[in-house]
Structures are given as C-alpha cells and as structure tokens.
C-alpha cells in the first residue's frame, strides 16, 4: 500500500502508553491523532475538528496536555505520549475520573468524553483542588455538544472529592 501513497514516506517510532510502536511508510504530513487512530490501533482519541478547536483528541505529551491533531506525528519521536487508553489501571478498571463521568451523567454520546477524561486527569494532577472557575477554564478547550457541561462539571467535582478523601 505504501508505494501508492502520494508524498514522502517515512519510518519512525513512537512511545505511547509506555510501549514503543513502529510506524512504517507513513506520509510525512500525518498528525499524531491520525497515527494513533489509524496506524497504532488506538482510536480512543477522537477526530472532531483537526484544528485544535475541540479537544476531542487531547493526549499528554511529555506530561503536557495537547491536541494530538496539532502534533506532527513524526516530530513526536522520543516523546512520552499518554492517551485515554493509557489512563486506567487495567482491563476491567476505571480511573477515578472515568468512574465519576459515568456516575454523574457526564457521558451522553461520548465522543468528547475521552478528551475530557484526559484533560481532567491533567487538571487534577496539577491542581488537586480547583475552584469551579478553574475547572471551567481548564476544560474550556474541550467542546461538548450534548451535556451543556453541567454533569461534566459535577463529575470533576466528584473526582476531586474522591481524591480529597
């Protein structure tokens, strides 16, 4: 298939959720989101705008919350990438944030959910006890069209309280 792709093909490796992955014969212009979803079998990060305006594709790159659609995949060589698939401890487990989204009704269609989960993990990592305004600002890069954010904010509050206990 590679030979038929128009453009410049490259090979490289990415470290995602602690594992090294080979990316072979990829078009140079592919963004990290595309590579995660279509080449590495990690479709948890979602593609809703591809211009950094929705947060559905949020991942952690070297500990920083970024939009994976805004990262040139080939430039992420050597970086530590964590996706939503890397957040929960195991097969049948949910992270506290994931559990709170479920319990509080923060999930409807679910398309924005993985991005929100990653953003909220990042927020609580750096600010374990945020005010409501701080929460709102921290998730202001994640669009949701179903919930009006009310139950999502309730979920963040619940996760926050769990961590305080």
């Amino acid at each position: 298939m590679g030979a038929d792709i128009v453009g410049e093909l490259i090979d490289y490796q990415l470290r995602v959720n602690g594992h090294e992955h080979d990316v072979a014969e990829a078009w140079l212009g592919e963004n990290l989101l595309y590579v995660l979803r279509e080449r590495l079998g990690l479709p948890g990060s979602k593609n809703a705008c591809e211009q950094g305006e929705c947060g559905s594709c949020s991942v952690l790159m070297d500990g920083k919350l970024v939009c994976s659609c805004m990262v040139l995949a080939a430039s992420a060589v050597g970086a530590d990438i964590v996706t939503v698939e890397g957040l929960s401890a195991g097969e049948n487990e949910l992270s506290d944030v994931q559990a709170a989204f479920l319990a509080e009704g923060g999930v409807q269609c679910g398309f924005c959910t993985p991005g929100f989960v990653v953003s909220v993990h990042d927020l609580l990592e750096h600010n374990p006890d945020p005010t409501e305004l701080e929460v709102r600002e921290a998730v202001s890069g994640n669009l949701c069209r179903c919930t009006g954010y009310g139950r999502i904010l309730a979920a963040v509050r619940a996760a926050q309280e769990t961590r305080q206990e």
């Binding site: 990060s45 996706t83 698939e85 487990e93 949910l94 559990a99 479920l102 999930v107 959910t113 993985p114």
Partner: peptide, 29 residues
C-alpha cells in the same frame, strides 16, 4: 486510583448507569 466496574440494576425513575458508559469513558466505544 481506580474503581472496579460494578453493575447497576436500577429501574424506572432511578438514575441507572448507561450500559455503553464504560466503553465510552475508556475510549473503547
């Protein structure tokens, strides 16, 4: 921190959990 998955068996009038909720929060839906 993590929580084991449980099942909720709530009836009408109660806030039953979404059956598709677990895969959705895990990014597996």
């Amino acid at each position: 921190m993590s929580t084991a998955l449980g099942t909720r068996r709530r009836r009408l009038g109660e806030s039953a959990a979404r059956p598709d909720g677990v895969p959705k929060v895990r990014g597996e839906f």
